[in-house]
Amino acid sequence: MPTTVSRDELQRMLDDEDTQLVDVLPAREYAEGRLPGAINLPLKKLNRDTAAVLDRARPVVLY
């Protein structure tokens, strides 16, 4: 079960460069506005191949 994080917790995690931030919204919404440094992996396209851009050894935060 994924752990839910608050805004404050996310800010602390992002201070650590290890954290990977992923916007799972459609590409258009990602283009309009996103958190700094987030990459886009839309839910509808999330599979083994697209997820390969992420490092399994590092934390992943999705929104």
Binding site: P2, T4, V24, R34, R56, P59, V60, L62, Y63
Partner: peptide
């Protein structure tokens, strides 16, 4: 939506997954 994506990532073998449920708004 992010919770579903997080669950999907876990199903792909990721073990260090967090959900910022409140999101960008």
């Amino acid at each position: 939506m992010s919770l579903r994506a997080a669950a999907r990532l876990e199903s792909l073998g990721f073990t260090n997954v967090y959900d910022y449920e409140a999101g960008k708004a």
